[in-house]
Nucleic acid binder design. Sequence first.
DNA 1: TGCGGTTTGGACTGACGGGTCCAATATTGA
DNA 2: TCAATATTGGACCCGTCAGTCCAAACCGCA
Lengths: 198, 198
Amino acid sequence: MTQRRIQILDAAAELIAEKGFIQTSVDDVIARAGLSGKSHFYHYFKSKDALGHEVLARQFDLLGERGLAILSESSLDPIERLQVFIDSVVAMQVERGMKGGSPFGALASDMAEQDEGFRVRIARVFRGWIDEIAGLLSQAEDRLEEGTDPVRLARFIVAALEGATTMARMKRDVSLMHGVASDLKRFLTSHVRGSVTR
Amino acid sequence: MTQRRIQILDAAAELIAEKGFIQTSVDDVIARAGLSGKSHFYHYFKSKDALGHEVLARQFDLLGERGLAILSESSLDPIERLQVFIDSVVAMQVERGMKGGSPFGALASDMAEQDEGFRVRIARVFRGWIDEIAGLLSQAEDRLEEGTDPVRLARFIVAALEGATTMARMKRDVSLMHGVASDLKRFLTSHVRGSVTR
DNA sequence: TGCGGTTTGGACTGACGGGTCCAATATTGA
DNA sequence: TCAATATTGGACCCGTCAGTCCAAACCGCA
């Protein structure tokens, strides 16, 4: 029951990451999940869109968990944690062989165009990450250079990661991903008081 | 003849920017371009994919022109030009009311998934921008901080702009776009010798 | 063994989209 | 003016896909 739902969600997540939402047919999902018969699928999900929304929500949870695990690793100070976090986003993308969807943007960019509900949902996901990172930066606020706005810096970090992932995906270029990430970390430290900017 | 082709290309570019490539049907294009009858369309284009490729190439040319006009504005020094350029990317996105596709990435991210040819083409487009910007940075190499790699910096700039556009589109947030752009300019100047980093 | 319900398979429907075809209409040139 | 050629309109074909429906298989359970 719930078992099966998860099976379907996993299969769908994979396919959506590979081909995009529109390009993924319900039949594809069924095949990948190893069910046969559509009624089976429609027994668990109201519609393809409903599935999409759930995949997105789930993806967010999974990334959130993974991100949170790092972002709350208390043996490191907030700034270091953030750096490890950036590396882990890179690692996730490399893992997928540069093929998979970005953190969420590209994965879901066609979803966003599909209906307004998706767009709002994706926007919320971005917001979630930004908030998490901004929270971490705030923790280290006393170490930040005068006038550094945590939210703004968080936005920049997420934007750069998002863009790097999209570009790396298009160019199938792992080194690009690494390059941007390390520049980003340097950018981050340049906002930290007393650290050597280069 | 060529006139009509351009009409079709313009219509298609609009629609693709709004809805994505897959979501745009040939009938949509025909309606927007004011033709009636499909044969008319197929008289000018071999297939929908062929149209897509041409739109992409054209978009690149148009952006290239616009970008080049700024990037070669000789009354400003290279670094200033680059800053104006960043602003103009922002302006383009704001113009489209945060709806349109990013410089190209999101606009075409579903294209990329559609067929390998698109992906390669989009990758080339990114490369074009990076090369242009890197060239400009090289011109000012003597003013850059020791050890700054123009290509790498150029990649970072393009990635950040790309990501900012995607995020801004999802969140329908103009200020995000501006924020990232100004942070990016600050990042840029931090690589220029003797400039005040903040 | 036989009766209730649930799970499963897969045929089917209807809409939509890409692409073709051909007939009608304009356009050219002699 | 007339025929040959280029342009136009739109009906049509075919494949795909979301979503429905029903019949068969499978389950307890008596």
